[in-house]
Design a protein around this nucleic acid. Structure first.
Length: 814
RNA sequence: GCCGAAGUGGCGGAAUGGCAGACGCGGCGGUCUCAAACACCGCUGAGUGAAAGCUCGUGUGGGUUCGAAUCCCACCUUCGGCACCA
């Protein structure tokens, strides 16, 4: 008699065995086709939470499936270990960030192992260890040498809480993505990566299977708009500048009756007239006091101030006033717009408020131009008030105006992007030091590759100075210039952690290489990633950065192919049992360690996979755990309890059991390929029920039973690795179930002998008939007319039409 | 405002042109048990009926089709992203 299923006894046993045997090690010279499965690595803060379990349970199940499908699977894990929480812990509690991080990693590793995750731990990387960040620094130098890293004085997003700058991607509706503080502006000299060089290529998603919504979000973020750069002459004595504006509507240029500059625009100081200077300065002050959120509010009434200066509309020859207003952003386009009040609603509101001229430059069938406009109209029929262009239909207008501009030197066709270059400087301690030395005579000098890594010094001091804590360590900062040995200072900014995670997938292919970031051979062997999984919250940060990074690496000859991750699957967000985001303050947190202690890792994994479609996430249902546990117990007793078998079972019953088994194989394969774990489990439960029925009927065919049990175990192995390994062993099968081949469905066995078809009369189901699977329309029709139940519906009239879908339904239209 | 996803029993969800509600939870009834359970069996969308059955039913309104949860149009709601973007 088999003993009970007791997960806490079998799970640690198998975890130890798998580790000792190196069961999940990826072998570089294995002849089988490679499969690189990658799950976004975590930031090691405190505990592996339920959201992590949700992600890694699905990823692990898929990786195990691919291994059983005959692939040489690389499924590595590491830690994205630089970042703010470690530094904040250091500031608050005085612990060393490195110690804090290492102890968290120890805990994460323990929890990953408790989960039964099939990572190849020999390839682990930790981004905060010098062995790794040496190569992050090396990559920085490669980008620098290629002109893709540069330093610029620019307005930066400053998070007062984190005391550091943020990339645009890390600002979420005016707040810090991490700390939720309101972001301020600061002018600082910072390091940038020239991601905009790749903007157009990043808009292409050819050759990769990524979710549509990630395409949409990245496309949205990059924000490409086509238009023209037009030059307007500044009409101010002693200023010989032209004022450039980007516009998507160069065809409305004759209607540009004023210009608006962002208050921070460089030209403002030089053109403001003495009479207007006071008002201009006051407005600029008021603007700088506003937060990003206040400034971006679309509710707010438009405001602005006249500079007293004029520009010349190069096209119309009109002298038009130059205003400043906060609705023009210094970070977008050229920070200046030509205002066309007749055809842009914002400009219209502004013109109305300040009594500026409104000149329509399009006719419109529904707009009476003899009266003042009540609002702007964006599209029109044909150009008017536009000199030589009058009468041009709208569809030809932009092309003609741009050609004219180019011929006369008034401007040129241009493309503008919303996306800015990637700001990578952080005034933080816990990050990879940027490998640059500032020399009094030689300026910016890259650290020679032979001197890498630039090791992060121990014993940091944290004082909220707004500068990198590294500036407070003079013995580290003061160095000799690599060129002449003269006095020089190290760069004290550290790299944005997203830089470290932009190339980690490359390091996993050759994680211990002391000579290079990774060898070309191993890169060619394993890269790119075949399947990537992770949350959609990284859509415009990590997932955009890593694509940029890859393309830059490709252009430098380090990798081949255009994309780093061929397939991407985003799991959804797991919510608390109350349907709210899990958080300690709400008290709706499900603690994985407790769940494992109570029910075992297999049950917790399965329950997480069963709550709903993996890509949708949704509320965690703690009471549903009972169903999963019942099913695992059923599997246990099906496999181990004695069953009355015979050598040659009843043919029909045998065929029925084998059909159930093979149908389950076919369905399960389809589900697991598409990450549909909830329906995968439903299919497996149905199979368990089918086996139970066969067993209870007695005198089961021994071979069919054996096949059913083996199949059930093989199909369940990726989801619940421990219980299946235990049952596999107890059934006397060869170790390990996880090294077995995924079963194949026999198409012959999938065929039904008889099928139940629905018989409809005028589209409504009136009866169900059992027919041979091969029945043709005539047979089905004859059977329907022979059915007593259908008599009253069909009457004696001839059907007008009959639709027959073999195996499914017969619809008789009267 | 723009882009994207979604709306189905008491609950999580299944079905992507062919029998709506698979699978599971919960509930109800029963079996075994001294008793209970994470053991087992049955029922469980609403209305009506003794029952067979019939009628209604997938956010709302319309359409296409022999047939629509599924496709099309309009609208409503929720979630995610972007937003004074020139």
């Amino acid at each position: 008699m088999a003993d009970r299923y007791e997960p806490h006894l079998i799970e640690p046993k198998w975890q130890a065995r798998w580790e000792a045997d190196g069961l999940y090690r990826a072998v570089d010279d294995d002849p089988r086709p490679k499969w690189y499965e990658l799950a976004m690595f975590p930031y090691p803060s405190g505990d592996l939470h339920t959201g992590h379990w949700y992600h890694y349970s699905g990823a692990d199940t898929h990786a195990r499936y691919m291994r059983m499908s005959g692939y040489n699977v690389l499924y590595p894990m590491g830690f994205d270990a630089f970042g703010l929480p470690a530094e904040n812990a250091a500031i608050k509690r005085g612990v060393d960030p490195a110690d804090w991080t290492r102890s968290n990693i120890v805990n994460f590793r323990r929890q990953f192992k408790m989960m039964g995750a099939s990572f190849d731990w020999e390839r682990e990387v930790v981004t905060s260890e010098p062995e790794y960040y040496k190569w992050s620094q090396w990559w920085f130098l490669q980008l620098y040498h290629r002109g893709l890293a540069y330093r610029a004085a620019a307005a930066a997003n400053w998070c007062p809480g984190c005391q550091t700058v943020l990339a645009n991607e890390q600002v979420v509706s005016g707040r810090c993505e991490r700390s939720d503080d309101i972001v301020a502006r600061r002018f600082l000299t910072q390091w940038f990566f020239r991601i905009t060089t790749y903007a157009d290529e990043l808009l292409k998603f050819e050759g990769i299977e990524w979710p549509e919504r990630i395409h949409a979000m990245q496309t949205n973020w990059i924000g490409r708009s086509e238009g023209a750069l037009l030059h307007f002459k500044v009409d101010v004595a002693g200023v010989d500048d032209s004022l450039d504006v980007f516009t998507t509507r160069p065809d409305t240029v004759y209607g540009a009756t004023f210009m608006v500059l962002a208050p921070e625009h460089q030209l403002v100081d030089r053109i403001a007239t003495p009479e207007q200077r006071g008002a201009v300065d006051a407005y600029r002050q008021a603007t700088s006091r506003q937060t990003e959120i206040e400034r971006q509010s679309t509710e707010k009434e438009k405001s602005g101030v006249f500079t007293g200066a004029y520009a010349m509309n190069t096209f119309s020859g009109a002298r038009i006033p130059i205003w400043i207003a906060d609705y023009v952003l210094v970070t977008y386009g050229t920070g200046a717009v030509m205002a066309v009040p007749a055809h842009d609603q914002r400009d219209f509101e502004f013109a109305t408020k300040y009594g500026l001229e409104v000149i329509p430059v399009y006719s419109h069938a529904d707009v009476d131009l003899s009266r003042p406009l009540e609002r702007a109209f964006v599209h029109g029929d044909a150009m008017i008030n536009s000199g030589p262009f009058d009468g041009t239909p709208e569809r030809d207008a932009i092309g003609r105006v741009v050609r004219h501009a180019e011929e006369h030197g008034f401007g040129e066709g241009s493309v503008n992007y919303r996306m800015r270059d990637w700001l990578i400087s952080r005034q933080r301690y816990w990050g990879a030091p940027i490998p640059i030395i500032h020399c009094e005579t030689h300026g910016i000098v890259p650290v020679p590759e032979a001197d890498l890594p630039v090791v992060l010094p121990d014993h940091p001091k944290f004082e909220a100075t707004g500068q990198s804590p590294l500036t407070q360590l003079p013995e580290w900062v003061n160095v000799q210039c690599p060129v002449d040995g003269g006095p020089a200072r190290r760069e004290t900014d550290t790299l944005d952690t997203f830089m470290c995670s932009s190339w980690y997938q490359m390091r996993f292919v050759d994680p211990q290489n002391p000579e290079r970031a990774f060898s070309k051979e191993l890169g060619a062997k394993w890269l790119p990633v075949d399947q990537y999984t992770g949350g959609a919250d990284h859509a415009v940060m990590h997932l955009l950065y890593t694509r940029f990074f890859w393309k830059a690496a490709r252009d430098m000859g380090y990798v081949e192919g255009d994309e780093p991750m061929l397939r991407l699957f985003n799991q959804g967000t797991l919510l608390g049992p109350d349907g709210q985001k899990m958080s300690k303050s709400r008290g709706n947190v499900v603690a994985p360690d407790d769940q494992v202690a109570q029910h075992g890792a297999d049950a917790f994994r399965c329950q997480l996979m069963f709550v709903g479609p993996w890509d949708q996430g949704g509320p965690y249902n703690p009471t549903g755990m009972a169903g999963i546990i019942r099913w695992l117990h059923r599997l246990w007793s099906l496999a181990l309890d004695p069953v009355e078998t015979v050598a040659n079972g009843d043919a029909a019953a045998t065929r029925s059991l084998r059909r159930a088994t093979h149908k389950t194989i076919a369905a399960a394969t389809e589900e697991i390929e598409h990450f549909r774990f909830n329906t995968l489990i439903a299919r497996l439960m149905e199979h368990s029920t089918a086996m139970q029925k066969a067993r209870d009927a007695g005198r089961v065919d021994a071979a069919a039973w054996d096949e059913a049990i083996s199949t059930a175990l093989l199909l369940t192995a990726p989801l619940a690795p421990h219980i299946v390994e235990e049952l596999w062993e107890r059934k006397g099968r060869p170790y390990s179930v996880h090294a077995q081949r995924w079963p194949h469905a026999d198409p012959e066995l999938l065929k039904e002998d008889e099928v139940e078809i629905a018989v409809q009369v005028n589209g409504r189901v009136r009866d169900r008939l059992l027919l041979p699977a091969t029945a043709d329309e005539a047979t089905a029709k004859a059977a329907a007319f022979a059915s007593p139940r259908l008599k009253e519906w069909l009457g004696s009239s001839e059907p007008r039409r009959v639709i027959y879908v073999p195996g499914k339904l017969l619809n008789i239209v009267l």
